[in-house]
């Protein structure tokens, strides 16, 4: 009997691995195609699409496309801009949204529930509907910078960062997570003499690993993929992010190899970010087992 169940177990394992491998292949093939194609000249790239050669680094392989991509567009600037914009937004967003959620969940104040429901209602408003009013507003906002008081935020980093720091989804994620934290932990900290900022910093945040990782990944992807908004508010190359930079490769003579090279390059920060956070994510899941 034991051997039969062991066989069953083995068979089930094989099937499970086959399914998982299939899923992995489906997810990984576009990436492989992108990287492999970035190494091929256009003609070969197009010819290979009809066969499995599309996924293999065969034929006339070189990094010429990468040289060409850098020549055609300031790729380094774009990647740097996106990293700055995304990085700063993610950090500020985690900080501001978690504090907002902290207030909604743990503090008592007049109108709290109403304001939270208004914030959550913004989740169903598509960005496109507010894009134009936001553009008009941004073009007139004041700012005190290196040159004193200035008007208008267009062609800056801040216009790409500040409107996206606080958002309903991130607040919602934190609110849901905080509501599930044991209330007695917060009460114990209060009785022990902790102030609200101390409770936020010493109790709530250290226990929020999973939601921080989730919110960071979602925010990172949303910010890194920004296209419409930077297209509207940035006309100068020096502030342009990667997605808008993609335009450079569709104008005039379109070169698929260069597009693939560019895409491969701009995927690197995403992968790096994900890999770093994945570890934090797993670690935080492991540490929440402590709750007991």
């Amino acid at each position: 009997m034991a051997s039969i169940s062991a066989d069953n177990h083995g068979l089930r394992l094989v099937v499970r691995y086959m399914v998982l491998t299939l899923v992995a292949i489906i997810f990984i093939f576009p990436l492989v195609f992108m990287v492999v194609s970035s190494l091929k000249p256009d003609q070969q790239l197009l010819a290979d699409t009809s066969s499995l050669r599309a996924f293999l680094p065969v034929g006339d392989i070189s990094v010429d496309n990468y040289y060409a991509a850098f020549k055609r567009a300031p790729v380094g600037t774009f990647v740097l801009n996106s990293v700055i914009i995304t990085g700063v937004t993610v950090v500020l967003s985690l900080f501001i949204c978690s504090m907002a959620a902290f207030s909604f969940v743990f503090l008592k104040w007049q109108g709290r529930d109403l304001i939270l429901s208004i914030i959550l209602a913004t989740l169903i408003v598509p960005f496109e509907t507010i894009a134009i009013p936001l553009l008009l507003l941004s073009s007139k906002l004041p700012w005190i910078g290196a040159h004193g008081l200035e008007w208008g935020w267009l062609n800056t980093y801040r216009v790409q960062i500040i409107p996206f720091i606080a958002d309903g989804l991130t607040i919602f994620l934190f609110v849901q997570y905080f509501k599930d934290l044991p209330g007695e932990l917060i009460e114990a900290a209060r009785v022990e003499g902790a102030t609200w900022p101390q409770i936020y910093r010493r109790i709530v945040m250290p226990l929020s690993g999973p939601v921080l990782a989730t919110a960071a990944i979602l925010k990172f992807l949303a910010m890194y993929n920004q296209y419409l908004w930077p297209l509207m508010v940035v006309q100068q190359e020096e502030y342009r992010p990667v997605m808008v930079g993609l335009q450079y490769f569709f104008q005039l003579n379109r070169a698929w190899g260069e597009i693939m090279a560019y895409l491969s390059l701009i995927t690197v920060p995403v992968l790096a970010f994900y890999l770093v956070l994945q570890r934090a994510f797993i670690a935080s899941i492991a540490s929440t087992g402590v709750k007991g």
Binding site: P182, E184, L185, E187, A188, A189, I203, P206, L207, S287, T288, V290, K291, G292
Partner: peptide
């Protein structure tokens, strides 16, 4: 009742 000791 739930001890409320800080898990981290």
């Amino acid at each position: 009742q739930s001890y409320a000791i800080f898990p981290h």
